[in-house]
């Protein structure tokens, strides 16, 4: 409660401070941490897309990594294979994610619960299979490398310091966009569908359409994340849209709490930091992710949909932030 009070009182100052300090990063942060910050920012966008769908619409999607990967591949392929560059390649990337989500959504959105999980898993893996097998286009297992960041008016965005600003702006835009949707009538309708779809039908809502729009929207957001990913790392391979990536996203989201967009960012931060720290110590990184995921499910099993994540100390803070924004 005290955190909540404190937070409410200084909310504006606090948030302005956070945003300003985010903008100041490139000036004083060591390169290593700036790189980490960039990774956290673009993966946060991906995790937010999952959190939005899971928390608001109750759809646990394992296809997000596929949307992320498809737009990244689209940018890589147009750039490297066809010589199509910045504004157009990005547009194609987003359209690819949108198109795929619109297509998957037609089938996935009609079922719920574990069926939805299964179908999104299978769909996502099939895209993985395509990336892995279609060697002439995607480079197969090794993927595509050498995608350079755009250069606009003499500024090369390959420099992390310059890459950071557009990323931060898009990140904030996605965050604000999703937060606005959350409190819009459409957001309320989504939560209605999550809680009780059959009642929603009897209230006259087009349930399929509502879920479908949310699904496509979250696919596009995931695609936006993929574009920054491929520009920043310069490489894309099937691993980026594999099942382990999908699980990573889910884990980050659940750690932060699926109800909260800010939680998505915090969850991404924790996992990314863990990745860096553990990467230096042990080789069995996936094992740690797997065990962390298992423990999260065991201790927060109801938390996937509800609020049984109290064991995570961050929960209080996130709750406070959520409440203040209601």
């Amino acid at each position: 409660m005290s955190i909540y009070r404190l937070y409410c009182k200084y909310k504006l100052i606090l948030e302005a401070g956070i945003v300003l300090s985010l903008f100041s990063f490139p000036w004083w942060m060591p390169a290593f941490y700036l790189t980490l910050a960039i990774r956290v920012l673009f993966f946060s966008i991906l995790v937010m897309s999952f959190t939005f769908l899971a928390g608001q619409a109750g759809m646990i999607s394992l296809s997000q990594a596929a949307f992320f990967g498809v737009s990244a591949y689209a940018v890589a392929i147009t750039t490297v294979r066809f010589g199509i560059h910045f504004p157009l390649s990005v547009l194609i990337g987003i359209l690819a994610a949108m198109g795929l989500a619109s297509f998957f959504g037609l089938f996935a959105v009609r079922v719920k619960g574990v069926y939805f999980l299964m179908i999104t898993l299978a769909f996502g893996q099939i895209i993985w299979g395509l990336a892995d097998q279609w060697v002439s286009l995607t480079g197969g297992y090794n993927g595509i490398s050498g995608i350079s960041s755009p250069r606009i008016g003499g500024i090369s965005f390959a420099n992390p310091r310059f890459f950071y600003f557009p990323l931060l702006c898009v990140f904030l835009a996605c965050l604000i966009f999703l937060a606005l949707i959350k409190r819009s009538p459409f957001g309320l309708a989504l939560r209605g569908v999550r809680d009780n779809p059959s009642r929603m039908v009897m209230l006259g809502y087009p349930v399929f359409l509502i879920k479908y729009v949310a699904f496509v929207l979250s696919g596009v957001i995931a695609g936006i994340s993929g574009i920054f990913f491929v520009y920043f790392t310069g490489v894309i391979n099937p691993h980026a849209l594999g099942l382990s990536q999908a699980v990573w996203v889910m884990l980050a989201s659940i750690l932060g709490g699926v109800e909260s967009l800010v939680g998505a960012i915090i969850g991404t931060l924790i996992l990314s930091a863990m990745e860096v720290l553990l990467g230096q110590i042990i080789e069995r990184y996936m094992l740690v992710i797997g065990v962390a995921f298992m423990l999260t499910i065991l201790f927060a099993s109801k938390g996937i949909m509800g609020s049984l994540q109290k064991f995570i100390p961050l929960r209080n803070l996130i709750n406070a932030i959520n409440k203040a924004h209601k």
Binding site: V114, M286, I297
Partner: peptide, 27 residues
């Protein structure tokens, strides 16, 4: 020892087996 912890919650069960899949793959 594991599935019995989340019996009745089908989604949690599926996610639990997903975590096992990741663990077994790495092992």
């Amino acid at each position: 020892f594991l599935l019995s912890q989340v019996r009745g919650n089908f989604l949690a069960q599926a996610l639990l087996t997903l975590s096992l899949a990741i663990i077994l793959a790495d092992v």
